[in-house]
Design a protein around this nucleic acid. Structure first.
Lengths: 208, 208
DNA sequence: GCAGAAATTAATAGCTCTATTAAATAAGTC
DNA sequence: GACTTATTTAATAGAGCTATTAATTTCTGC
């Protein structure tokens, strides 16, 4: 246990946990596995994080922020609404591509653990609701200007998230279905980003 | 253990398992829980299904067929391509609404268990690939006729599946985010079916 | 280099879960 | 009703998991 690749043991445990939680989810990842992955004693995992639950929380919160942040914070410097939206979709897609198992884990934890929803709701307070409202207003404005059709924020966000996540959530299925090698599938993923932007923007475009 | 509501014990076990597997997934559902749900001894679960794994398989296969079948078999009697596609999307959406946890479970099992992919690939043989090919041909035909833009089958299927699944996969999040009561969310789900048809058909429509 | 703090390990208690086995009960069958 | 088979239960082996504790090693400042 001295492979000190410039990382503290705590960091290495967190990383190993991250990897395994992504791969197998919470229930199927054991502190024993994490220790084995790191190459340390299993008690050490508990020494640093006390419980498996806390360890999980440690990385889960960051990931949620990453996921939401991509949509909320990207493209806000664009003046043109279409460019702004495009940037948001692309940034969100890029984050997911970097963390392909993230959407899945996110939906999983938030839907099997209904406590967590209320926890995060309490923790985040009014912020999400306010963001949603302000996005709703923006969409209404843009619709009145005739730039887009009428749509509510939730529908649009759901659409973006689903389109961006699907190729990763269902990757094994699609890979098998299309007889894709890893490289081939990477190409499919490249294309898909533009596809998603196109489908959203085309839907929003008022009939000419 | 004599509440014989016209069902065999085996069926009742399978149903209880179904319910719990949907709610909690494979790992978090225990044969003990299933027995408690049924109101029988835990050993009985093993008596009928031998292992938890086999019990899981027993219902999982049916569900996969349900999911794929909705897309593959609906609307095929329509002559008009657009109507056909509309029917497929709607049927698929309806199945998911009836089994809201199905997409999630499906993606989960197929992505954590890469063995299963090859298993199903072996079991289903060429059928999926052939279906995909024939759908690809049909899309090319329709594109040549000028009825739709060019698109490959995988992209289209991925789009439909993702749009149809998102409101269910992310239901707890969206419910919390929109401050929806159960009834309110049902209304959102009603609307969403048409929304999904619209967004797909609008994307496919050639620019006029 | 030594005392005290931090990091790490070995060992294990205490649970929980799956699966099996043997015994008990219920349900046919002739 | 006796015999056979099917269903159900109680008990438990055996494995694996989390978390804790106490002991050991490594590090740090003086």
């Amino acid at each position: 246990m001295k492979k000190n690749r410039d990382q503290t043991t705590e960091q290495r445990i967190l990383e190993a946990a991250e990897k395994l939680f992504y791969e197998r989810g919470y229930a199927m990842t054991h502190t024993t596995d994490i220790a084995r992955e790191v190459g340390c004693n299993q008690a050490l995992v508990h020494y640093y994080f006390r419980t498996k639950e806390r360890l999980f929380e440690s990385f889960f919160e960051n990931k949620i922020k990453l996921f939401i942040g991509a949509l909320a914070n990207s493209g806000n410097d664009e003046t043109d609404f279409e460019s702004k939206l495009r940037k948001k979709i692309e940034a969100h897609y890029d984050i997911i591509r970097k963390h392909p198992r993230l959407p899945f884990l996110l939906f999983n934890e938030l839907s099997t653990n209904s406590k967590k929803i209320s926890e995060y709701k309490a923790k985040l307070g009014e912020t999400p609701a306010l963001l949603l409202e302000s996005f709703d207003r923006e969409l209404k404005e843009q619709a009145q200007k005739g730039n887009i059709i009428e749509i509510n924020a939730l529908d649009l966000i759901a659409t973006i998230i689903s389109l961006n996540a699907i190729m990763f959530i269902a990757a094994p299925v699609f890979k098998a279905l299309s007889n894709s090698t890893e490289k081939n599938y990477e190409k499919i993923l490249d294309r898909r980003k533009d596809f998603n932007v196109d489908i959203v923007l085309k839907y929003l475009k008022p009939i000419q």
